[in-house]
Design a binder for these strands. Structure first.
Lengths: 182, 182
DNA sequence: TCGACAAGTTTGGTAACCCAAACATGTTGA
DNA sequence: TCAACATGTTTGGGTTACCAAACTTGTCGA
């Protein structure tokens, strides 16, 4: 059984991921990042941020200069950029392919950004790049729009009839009646 | 700023989600589910499962009969089925649309199954149903296969050049230089 | 009948996270 | 210069979720 707790053994936790991306965002946005800025942005207390960042500093992901100004180490930048990129890709996948409203797409992407494997993220990127390349072909865009309309039409709540039926078909087709409830 | 901690305020936690879906899976598979079975399946101790299930019983999601056999309440079934359906849909999206290997698709789906909104899940279902309907169109399947090849081709590690460039384009196009690092 | 083993529970510990509140520091305007 | 305010840290508490280990039950075979 593939360990369902890979969740926890991620390089960075959900919380840490947000601390890192927030620092990067603040640096991009206002040129500096302090504990208070991070706290305000995440909606948590300065104390919590102080403690969390102490850990991230010890892990060598965050650096503090003489003036209590935060920045990311090379490794921290790498991690933050990776997560940010994943969020953007997943969000685009949900929004531009599935036709999910941007706000929802962003919320969902935010929740899963740090959990998606590199492989799936890269595949998402490849798919979107491919879509972009053929976007000049009106035939395909027309098809895609039809699919999006189908996808985005959510008259009933989840799971709708068709969706449920599809899931059942998928479940049976896939002979996973072996193991893995997860 | 949309609360980035929606993560935590889910109806059921990641852990609870797995307990519920495991019970359902065990019932389907072997006709019964006991604390030990759940523990073995999740790879955690009986003690942990015992404690967690006590909570889920109090919340009315899990029921225990006279013989220590577990089952799900109506509400529990509903939640478990919802999560299971989401996993199947997400897994299919990754595998059949993005062309991600099934094993990776399953792992990723498992990690995010309980985090995806109903709306996005329903859109995924709608999209897949639509795909199924036009799957007889050889022109379309041809295109999809091309896209999948593009998507699945991961010669370089994440993020590849094209993917990174796309992400940058998406980032700039989207005027989110307002708020939300998440 | 009784010992052994499987199954379930309880208890004490740990590790992430979060908060509130007290505290230390540093800057700044009157 | 000094009170006021912003900033950062520390401390004590709470929650979730895990473990190990001790304990209780229940069943089954010799």
């Amino acid at each position: 059984m593939s360990d369902w707790r890979e969740f926890e053994q991620n390089p960075v936790s959900h919380s840490a991921a947000h601390h890192l991306t927030t620092i990067q965002w603040l640096l991009d946005d206002q040129g500096y990042a302090r504990v208070s800025d991070v706290a305000r942005h995440l909606g948590i207390t300065r104390g919590s941020v102080s403690v969390t960042l102490k850990g991230l500093r010890q892990r060598g992901l965050v650096v503090e200069d003489d003036h209590k100004h935060l920045s990311l180490s090379e490794q921290g930048v790498q991690i933050a950029r990776g997560i940010r990129t994943k969020r953007i890709l997943i969000q685009a996948l949900f929004r531009e392919v599935l036709g999910v409203p941007d706000e929802v797409a962003e919320q969902d992407a935010c929740k899963v950004e740090h959990l998606i494997s590199d492989q799936t993220a890269e595949a998402t990127g490849g798919f979107l790049v491919g879509l972009e390349k053929i976007s000049s072909d009106s035939q395909w865009t027309h098809l895609l729009e039809s699919l999006q309309r189908l996808a985005a039409a959510t008259p009933t709540s989840f799971p709708g009839n068709e969706t449920q039926e599809l899931a059942l078909r998928l479940e049976k087709k896939d002979p996973q009646g072996e193991d893995q409830p997860s």
